[in-house]
Amino acid sequence: MFLYQDKVSFLHRMHPSAKLVGLVLAFCHPLLSSDPLYLSSSLGLALAVGALGRCLGNYLRMRKFLIPLFIASVLLWALFRRVGEPLLMLGPLSVSSESLSYGLAMGLRITSLLLFGVAFLSTTRIEELTAGLEAVGVPFKAGFVLSLAVRLLPTFAATGSEIVQAQRARGHDPFSGGPLARLRKAVPLVAPILLYALRKTDQLSVALEARGFGSPDRRPYLTYRFGLRDALALGVSAMVLVLSWRLRP
């Protein structure tokens, strides 16, 4: 569920705010052009960033999800985007060299975007994300609540699957019938999970305050200094982005 890997790397050591800004810059790169060759360079950059964060292993772990996504986006765009001379007709659908090239581009774009995200999450703790958000001006409480939501997701997912099992044990079959029947069948699943989420967040808010949350004296334990490494990383990222923008096809 969580991608974070407790390692030492260039990216791990970066200031979380610098990483956030870097992520935004990285996201811009694959959006500048729809040329497959250009977008291959985005993918190359994503791999380089992965090496810098020692998280190529996580990239590999995501292949079961990324490869089908890549294939699906290539196929969908290639089949449904009507441009150029059809090379191949499949009933009402057609594939042209333009639509194929566009499909390839979209597949590369979504893959590089996701890989940049994976690199960020693999090298940044949720607490660092909160600290990073705080440093760029997001109030601590808001950032904290956001990170809490991320943290609670696996717990909710686990409870959700328990609830599905509990209802199946009583002969409930939530995944059959038409859309309306399915909607009705969701009630026995949704009601307990909503109540669970409400109770859980209520208990958590009490537990948080019992541990001093909300105190104006708070002093963060994790502190970061914006260093040479961060300046260098952001400088290089910005330069690459500007160059790519100027040289893009």
């Binding site: 208990q203 958590l204 541990r211 105190s215 708070r218 334990y221």
Partner: peptide
């Protein structure tokens, strides 16, 4: 389950003292 929310044991324990404003 409803009182642990950090990503490491160290940060979990640090949460309270952080709120007390300790060095």
């Amino acid at each position: 389950e409803a009182q642990l929310f950090s990503t490491s044991v160290e940060l979990e324990v640090a949460f309270g003292p952080e709120n007390l404003g300790l060095s």
